[in-house]
């Protein structure tokens, strides 16, 4: 249940007492409450859980992590090749 689904903010709307937004989940548009991410802008990616935005996704961090993992995978391949050569 704590699963959050990443989606893109496509429209910000003010409804009664709660800041709401239309979120695009890979083509499916749903409304969610963005009260907890006041600085979010249209085009930002966010994680939605139970109709509520948990946080704005940090795209730079995502790329950094992937690069880091790529390095680990590459390094490991090299090490394995080295070990096989010994």
């Amino acid at each position: 249940m704590c699963l959050g689904i990443p989606g893109k903010i496509v429209e910000i709307e003010d409804s009664i007492g709660m800041k709401m937004a239309k979120i695009d989940f890979g083509g499916v548009i749903r409304s969610a409450c963005i009260e907890a991410i006041p600085d979010a802008k249209i085009g930002d990616y966010t994680i939605i859980h139970a109709g509520f935005a948990l946080n704005v996704f940090n795209e730079e961090e995502a790329m950094d992590t992937l690069n880091l993992l790529q390095e680990i995978a590459d390094l490991d391949q090299e090490l394995n090749i080295d070990e096989q050569n010994i």
């Binding site: 992937l66 993992l69 790529q70 680990i72 995978a73 590459d74 390094l75 490991d76 391949q77 394995n80």
Partner: peptide
């Protein structure tokens, strides 16, 4: 990458 991490 999955394989790389598992190997590591």
């Amino acid at each position: 990458l999955v394989r790389g991490l598992v190997d590591e």
